[in-house]
Design a protein around this nucleic acid. Structure first.
Lengths: 309, 309
DNA sequence: AATTACTGTTCCATATATGGCACAATTTTT
DNA sequence: AAAAATTGTGCCATATATGGAACAGTAATT
């Protein structure tokens, strides 16, 4: 079948009872319609309509043929309807990928509000600490903590600064001595998130502008911040963690901030999504919602902002 | 919806799992396929497929959309199937129009053989003595007795000569006197078929080549030959009738041939059908069957051929 | 590690389809 | 009776879509 559109046009011609009428309804020149139906008949080797200059008569074949053509039209309209449906208001599923820590601390606190505001939207929250390929994982939005997002095929929106600092248990500090300078940490056991680069280092900046880069060999590598925090609280070593994650533990005396005068690079919580012309309303409103409410959620969760970094 | 073919192509792309595969299967360049699907997505404002260079991923919308596209494909195939069905062997209905007399004397005798030979063909025999418009009456084949068929949009096949002669009842001949010359009929009551021209005349040719044209005012005008024959047998006057129609009555002594030395123009039984590229097998075989068996049927029915005209 | 094969997309000269017009045929209106 | 309106089709300059080649990216193979 060369051009299925011809089937739909044929159905319209029959239903309007004339080429001219159907042409007007379809917004197509009647000469085109005439030729296309004639082409269709030639291709099929069968006459569908007998024409006088004034009236059309369906052939027997045409009559049976018509039924299926009408099915084509109905199915095509139903197909189009599907796309209208998800476009007229926020509807359907949105897959969002987020690291565990972010999900547990920030997302969970704002999701109820979002779900209440958009009752026809379902959220599929994929929690993972691994870097995700948005297309392969079929994810609409991903949250990432990075200093910069380099992938040009993605749109990146900066949601929050996410300051990190070094933490260790008081017991560790007692055991290894309170460090005054980054190099004092050289014989400390260290913990770290997994980095695919395989290079583990801290880049310190003092309040006077002095820079020190220090390589270290982590005793524990994992891809979950919470695990790292527990390990640190259990005296396993010193670790770089988001400030907001540790605030409670610091207040409880389970962790202390190490080298508070030296800053580590401020990461940023990014939201990334693929560049797409037709972003669905459901995805759009989640993006907007995250932009609007994530900073507030971070405040409630005690996330470090510049002022307390 | 601009081009419904795109829906079918989309379905094929999904089912093959790749543009290249679908392109090969459809016999379409993959560049065309790629562009058409992209156009479709733009037109709908929705992304149907997420592509990597190696794999395709249906979006949620695409998945729902696909169902209807598959319906389109199935319906289009079903439509095409309808046309194949009636083309692969003689099948379906054939409407044939024929004058009453021809139907009753000739067609009925050969129809059983035809119906037996082609069990999947139905014949719709429209008996009428009025001139039929093949298209408006939706007739595939019409039988007509004319000297020539002038309509160029029709294909005319000559089936038989159909000689006519004048007949009257013996009683009439006794009453008005046996005519020796056409002009002897001038005071006879006359009967005639209905002619739309409104001009009633007999054109005689003698065996010596002499021509005489005689106008007359019919006492009875009808459009059925059988009625005319009965009227003549009932002594209502002289009438021009096909020779074969009257043979039985002549043998029974109910009618006699008048002016046997003077011939009337020999009409011809024609079969006409519209010129169509795609003549269905069912129509084709009926045409062929009539050409093959009508002469024999005429012989059995005693239809006048040249030899007995 | 390097090579090969194959993916989907883009480009652009070329081939194809389009659509305004004219036309013959017919119906409706004047 | 004549004129106006409307039908479906054929024509042809023009606009649109096509499809082969090139390309960048990825997976499988060597």
């Amino acid at each position: 079948m060369k051009d299925i559109t011809n089937l739909a046009w044929f159905a319209h011609v029959v239903e309007h009872g004339s080429f001219s009428g159907a042409a007007r309804a379809l917004g197509v020149p009647k000469s085109t319609l005439s030729r296309r139906i004639a082409d269709l008949e030639d291709e099929l080797g069968v006459r569908l309509l007998n024409r006088t200059t004034r009236k059309l008569y369906l052939t027997d074949v045409g009559r049976e043929f018509l039924v299926h053509c009408q099915t084509v039209v109905a199915a095509a309209e139903a197909a189009e309807q599907v796309t209208h449906f998800v476009q007229e208001k926020p509807r359907g599923k949105v897959r969002i990928s987020s690291p565990y820590a972010i999900s547990q601390s920030l997302l969970v606190s704002i999701m109820p509000g979002f779900l209440a505001r958009y009752p026809d939207v379902q959220i599929d929250l994929v929690m993972t600490n691994k870097p995700v390929n948005l297309i392969e994982e079929q994810v609409d939005i991903a949250l990432r903590v990075r200093s910069t997002i380099e992938d040009s095929s993605l749109i990146a929106r900066e949601l929050l600064p996410s300051a990190s600092a070094l933490f260790a248990s008081p017991e560790c500090v007692t055991r290894y001595g309170l460090p005054e300078h980054p190099l004092d940490l050289s014989d400390w056991p260290t913990l770290s998130m997994h980095y695919s680069s395989g290079r583990y280092q801290w880049s310190f900046t003092s309040q006077h502008g002095e820079s020190v880069t220090m390589n270290y060999q982590p005793r524990l590598i994992t891809d979950d911040l919470w695990v790292l925090r527990e390990a640190a609280a259990e005296h396993q070593g010193v670790v770089s963690l988001p400030v907001y994650l540790c605030r409670d533990y610091v207040e409880q005396g389970r962790l202390v901030r190490v080298l508070p005068e030296w800053r580590l690079p401020v990461g940023k919580l990014h939201m990334v999504y693929p560049y797409r012309r037709g972003l669905l309303p459901a995805v759009r409103v989640l993006i907007d919602y995250l932009i609007e409410f994530m900073p507030g959620a971070a405040g409630l969760a005690g996330l470090a902002t510049d002022s307390d970094a």
